[in-house]
């Protein structure tokens, strides 16, 4: 088994089925986020007594989170590159960097939300803020889930090495990570950039 390449692990029938199932799960997630974006766009102008998007957002700090998350996607891609070369330690290292960047992103997001709440922009203040926290919270929860999931996978990678079980799991986790990154790019455009216009 040790001599099998990662590509062969990924081509195994069960692995192929897992990957296909995961693509359909991503399809379901696209609907989920599509609906959340729809809700946000529908109530964006209903700011009531609360602040408008333009008053609320501080683009500088959002830029920082964006750079952090996009970099994590890059390190994730490098990790998969080393996974394909069956280099256990380098894979481990780059996935580790990925989840650290993910944690940093979550930290930044928590700081952002606390700041908003201190300014009086609570989840119940207006429909706009409700939709904003719902969308961003769902995305943030996905990042958090990804961090926990990949950390568990890294423990397995450490214990078992790259094999028929761990290789597909890490590959699928990387798909997930890229997906939540893509969602962030859309959030950045639709929520923050357009909100600032």
């Amino acid at each position: 088994m040790e001599t099998m390449s990662t590509q062969m692990h990924l081509n195994h029938k069960q692995a192929q089925m897992n990957i296909l199932a995961f693509w359909f799960l991503i399809g379901a997630e696209v609907v989920v986020f599509g609906c959340l974006f729809g809700i946000y766009l529908a109530v964006k102008s209903l700011t009531g007594q609360g602040p408008t998007p333009n008053e609320l957002f501080k683009l500088n700090e959002i830029m920082l989170s964006t750079v952090v998350l996009l970099t994590s996607s890059f390190t994730c891609a490098i990790a998969v590159y080393f996974l394909n070369l069956s280099k256990k330690l380098l894979t481990l290292l780059f996935f580790l960097i990925t989840i650290l960047l993910g944690l940093a992103f979550i930290g930044l997001e928590i700081r952002e939300f606390t700041l908003y709440v201190e300014e009086g922009a609570k989840i119940s203040t207006s429909a706009f803020l409700g939709a904003f926290y719902l969308l961003l919270g769902t995305h943030g929860f996905h990042v958090l889930f990804g961090v926990i999931w990949i950390s568990l996978l890294l423990v397995q990678l450490w214990l078992k090495g790259i094999n028929q079980e761990t290789a597909p799991k890490l590959f699928i986790a990387s798909l997930y990570w890229h997906f939540i990154d893509v969602i962030w790019v859309i959030i950045f455009t639709i929520v923050y950039l357009i909100g600032k216009v």
Partner: peptide
């Protein structure tokens, strides 16, 4: 099922937030 129930999931999440966390969407 995969595409319809995920829309339902969002609707239910929304209603849960309305009732539990006081959003006004």
């Amino acid at each position: 099922i995969v595409y319809a129930f995920s829309a339902l999931a969002v609707a239910l999440l929304l209603l849960t937030f309305e009732r539990l966390f006081g959003t006004v969407i």
